[in-house]
C-alpha cells in the first residue's frame, strides 16, 4: 500500500508491503533518510526520535501506515542551528549515534521551555540513551543552546 507523508517539509510517498512496517524502517530503508538511527527498535533508546505532528515520538514504534498525511520532522528539519552547534561546541557528541535523537528531543524541549533547569532537562531527555558522554556535556549543551537562542530572539 502507498502512504503519503510530509517529511522535513517535503511530500513523500512510500510503498509498504506489511501493515506493521515502522516509520523508522520506511524513513531509513525505503526513503533513504538515514538521519534517524536504529539502535533498539523497542522504544528504549530514543535514537530514532522524530517529531510527529510536532510531538517527539520513537519512529520505531509508529506504524508508517498511521502517518498518512501527517507531518514528520527528523533531525534534518526539526533542529535549529544553535542546538547543533552547542552539541559540537560542548563536546556533547562522541560516537554520535544518539545525537540525532537527542537533538530532536532538545529542540522540542527548548521550544516548550526556553530556559530549562537541570531537572527539566533530565526529565525531557530521559528517553534518549547515550553510552559515551555520561550526559553532563549534553546538559551543558542544552544550557548553551538555550542561551544562544535567547540571544537571537528580538
Amino acid at each position: 500500500m502507498r502512504v503519503t507523508l510530509h517529511v522535513d517539509g517535503a511530500e513523500l510517498a512510500a510503498e509498504i508491503d506489511r501493515p506493521g512496517e515502522s516509520l523508522l524502517s520506511t524513513l531509513r530503508d525505503r526513503l533513504g533518510l538515514t538521519g534517524s538511527k536504529n539502535a533498539c527498535e523497542q522504544g528504549e533508546c530514543g535514537s530514532c526520535t522524530v517529531l510527529l505532528d510536532g510531538a517527539p515520538v520513537c519512529a520505531c514504534l509508529v506504524a508508517t501506515a498511521q502517518c498518512e498525511g501527517r507531518e514528520v520532522k527528523t533531525v534534518v528539519g526539526a533542529v535549529p542551528r544553535p542546538v547543533r552547534d552547542a552539541f559540537v561546541q560542548c563536546g556533547a557528541v562522541q560516537c554520535g549515534f544518539c545525537t540525532p535523537g537527542l537533538l530532536v528531543s532538545v529542540a522540542d524541549l527548548l521550544e516548550r521551555d526556553p530556559d530549562p533547569g537541570d531537572a527539566a532537562i533530565r526529565e525531557a531527555l530521559a528517553g534518549n540513551l547515550c553510552r559515551c558522554t555520561g550526559y553532563e556535556k549534553i546538559i551543558d549543551a542544552v544550557h548553551t543552546a538555550a542561551a544562544t537562542l535567547a540571544g537571537e530572539r528580538p
Binding site: 501493515p19 506493521g20 527498535e41 522504544g43 520505531c60 514504534l61 506504524a63 501506515a65
Partner: peptide, 19 residues
C-alpha cells in the same frame, strides 16, 4: 500508540496480517 504492539511486531513476536 503502538508502544506495546510495535515492539512485538519489530521483534517478530507478532506478525499481524492486518491492522
Amino acid at each position: 500508540g503502538g508502544t506495546d504492539l510495535m515492539v512485538a511486531v519489530n521483534y517478530r513476536h507478532a506478525r499481524p496480517e492486518a491492522m
